[in-house]
Computed example of a mutant assay.
Amino acid sequence: MIKLCIVDDHAVVRSGLMMLLNAKEDMEVIGEASEGNEAIELALRLRPDVVLMDLSMPNGKDGLSAAKDLKQALPDLAVLILTMHDDDEYLFRAIHAGASGYILKTAPHEELLKAIRSVAAGHAYLYPTATKRLMSQYVDQLQGGDSSSFDTLSDREKEVVSLVAKGYSNKEVAEQLVISVKTVESHKSNVMEKLHLKTRPELVKYAMKKGLLNFE
């Protein structure tokens, strides 16, 4: 049985979803919330398998912020974004926030049920056109890198990227740049967030694409 919580600021939407999902033998709605803070409290208390989350909720914490906080508190929880926003920016921000899936409110009921079952089983789900756009962006990044993200880095952050990618430890980077180890760690954290990177190998590949591995 897949246990769900529904988070949407419209009561009519929540009611309709509850009727649809509770009619399925393998699904049960165990809670509902109208905004993000309430959703976090609800999920921590009820421990659902899937949280069906709207993005735009004006009277409290929004869906993206709530999804990020929920994934930090409950890493095994699947958050499925259900929204009207067919927009690349929202899609990519939802993925970076840790959402397991993204589906539009205009999707057929069977597609929504498929998405819920998919994320509940530990898989990722994106509606078809979103998958194409995501793959297109990934290919563009492989070919030329994310120049817009790179432009947001300060000169000091670029220096840190270069040294870290070359294999220097935080202490060694700090000594070369005459800053504290804590400052190096702060720069690294900011860089990884700006560039949407998670591991050192990813950082090395990025630095290589940007020509930051020129050893003197």
Rank of each mutant, 00 (worst) to 15 (best):
M1G: 06
K3L: 11
C5H: 03
C5W: 01
I6K: 10
D8I: 09
D8E: 11
A11T: 12
V12G: 01
V12T: 14
R14Y: 09
S15W: 05
M19D: 08
A23T: 01
K24L: 09
E25D: 12
E35W: 11
A39H: 13
E41R: 14
E41H: 10
L42R: 09
A43P: 06
R47M: 13
P48V: 11
D49N: 15
D49T: 13
L52P: 01
S56Q: 13
M57N: 12
K61G: 03
K61N: 04
D62H: 15
D62V: 14
G63K: 03
L64G: 06
A66N: 10
D69Y: 08
L70M: 15
K71E: 04
A73N: 12
L74A: 09
L77Q: 07
L77F: 13
A78H: 06
A78S: 15
A78C: 10
L80D: 05
L80Y: 11
M84V: 15
D87I: 12
D87G: 06
D88N: 12
E89N: 08
Y90T: 08
F92M: 12
R93I: 03
A94T: 06
A94Y: 05
H96I: 08
A97H: 09
A97R: 04
A97Y: 05
G98Q: 11
A99G: 11
A99E: 05
S100V: 07
S100D: 07
G101I: 12
Y102F: 15
I103Y: 03
L104C: 05
L104H: 02
L104W: 08
K105Q: 10
K105G: 10
A107C: 14
E110Y: 04
E110C: 01
E111K: 15
L113S: 00
L113F: 04
L113D: 00
K114Y: 14
K114A: 12
K114T: 15
K114D: 13
A121P: 04
G122W: 11
A124E: 11
A124L: 09
Y125K: 02
Y127D: 07
P128T: 09
P128F: 13
T129N: 10
T129E: 14
A130Y: 10
K132N: 05
Q137F: 07
Q137A: 08
V139R: 11
V139A: 10
Q141K: 14
Q141F: 13
G144H: 14
D146T: 10
S147G: 00
S148K: 13
S148C: 00
S149G: 07
S154F: 07
V160H: 00
V161E: 04
L163F: 09
V164P: 01
K166Y: 02
G167H: 00
Y168C: 02
S169C: 01
N170G: 03
V173F: 02
V173E: 01
E175P: 00
Q176Y: 05
L177Y: 04
L177T: 02
L177A: 02
L177N: 01
S180K: 02
V181Q: 08
K182Y: 05
K182H: 06
T183F: 00
E185F: 06
K188V: 13
N190C: 10
V191Y: 05
M192K: 13
E193T: 14
E193P: 01
K194M: 06
L195Y: 09
L195E: 05
L197Q: 12
L197T: 07
K198M: 07
T199M: 02
E202P: 04
E202H: 05
E202R: 03
Y206N: 09
K209M: 14
K210L: 03
G211F: 10
